[in-house]
Simulated scan of single mutants.
Amino acid sequence: MIMGIGVDTVNIERFERIITETPAFVRRIFTPNERSRNVRSQAVRFAAKEAVAKVLGAPAGLNWQDCEVATAESGQPYLIIRGTIADRARELGINRIHLSLTHDEPMAIAIATAEYLSDAELEHLRKFNPESHRLSVITETSADEG
């Protein structure tokens, strides 16, 4: 069942000015893996974090580094969710977040779709599409990963 959808856009040129003028912003928002990426990639990852915050109701106290945007070998983006982000998702009954990213100058866009899957549906993913199951599934152990 779909629990919510969040979307965000980031102007890449404006984002580049922000990270150039405020280096602490990058350290506060991005994980070490995300910091090593180019500006366009960081801009779209920031949009993804904003989209996830929106789908979670954007409560105070979310730690941006508890939501890391990673890329599967296939090129598909997915989230590594832990800590405050995983806690809020579980509180809302969300156990899977789909992510779609795109960037084309001058904009970066991200869409996050949150859903709840029953145990049977999660098992179906494990059985028929193990790669899909691995991507952005929030479990009890997610908070301990990373």
Rank of each mutant, 00 (worst) to 15 (best):
residue 20 T to K: 11
residue 20 T to Q: 09
residue 21 E to A: 12
residue 21 E to K: 12
residue 22 T to M: 07
residue 22 T to F: 09
residue 23 P to E: 10
residue 24 A to L: 07
residue 25 F to Q: 00
residue 25 F to E: 01
residue 26 V to I: 14
residue 26 V to F: 01
residue 26 V to Q: 01
residue 26 V to C: 08
residue 28 R to S: 12
residue 28 R to I: 13
residue 29 I to R: 02
residue 29 I to E: 02
residue 29 I to H: 01
residue 30 F to Y: 14
residue 31 T to P: 04
residue 33 N to P: 03
residue 34 E to P: 03
residue 34 E to I: 09
residue 35 R to I: 14
residue 36 S to W: 05
residue 36 S to G: 08
residue 37 R to Y: 08
residue 37 R to M: 11
residue 37 R to Q: 12
residue 38 N to F: 03
residue 39 V to T: 12
residue 39 V to Y: 02
residue 40 R to E: 15
residue 40 R to W: 02
residue 40 R to P: 08
residue 40 R to G: 07
residue 41 S to P: 00
residue 41 S to Y: 02
residue 42 Q to L: 09
residue 43 A to M: 11
residue 43 A to C: 09
residue 44 V to G: 00
residue 45 R to E: 02
residue 46 F to C: 14
residue 47 A to K: 08
residue 49 K to W: 06
residue 50 E to D: 13
residue 52 V to H: 00
residue 52 V to W: 01
residue 52 V to L: 06
residue 54 K to H: 10
residue 54 K to F: 04
residue 54 K to Y: 07
residue 54 K to N: 09
residue 56 L to S: 05
residue 56 L to P: 04
residue 56 L to Y: 07
residue 57 G to K: 11
residue 60 A to Q: 10
residue 61 G to F: 02
residue 62 L to C: 10
residue 62 L to Q: 07
residue 63 N to V: 13
residue 63 N to R: 13
residue 64 W to A: 11
residue 64 W to H: 01
residue 64 W to P: 05
residue 65 Q to E: 13
residue 65 Q to H: 03
residue 66 D to A: 01
residue 66 D to M: 01
residue 68 E to P: 03
residue 68 E to H: 11
residue 70 A to E: 12
residue 73 E to Y: 00
residue 74 S to K: 06
residue 74 S to G: 12
residue 75 G to F: 11
residue 75 G to R: 02
residue 75 G to S: 07
residue 77 P to T: 10
residue 78 Y to H: 14
residue 78 Y to L: 14
residue 79 L to S: 12
residue 79 L to M: 09
residue 80 I to T: 15
residue 80 I to Y: 03
residue 81 I to N: 04
residue 82 R to F: 01
residue 82 R to L: 05
residue 82 R to I: 06
residue 84 T to Q: 04
residue 86 A to H: 05
residue 87 D to M: 03
residue 87 D to Q: 13
residue 87 D to S: 08
residue 87 D to P: 04
residue 88 R to I: 02
residue 89 A to Q: 11
residue 89 A to E: 09
residue 90 R to P: 00
residue 90 R to L: 13
residue 91 E to D: 15
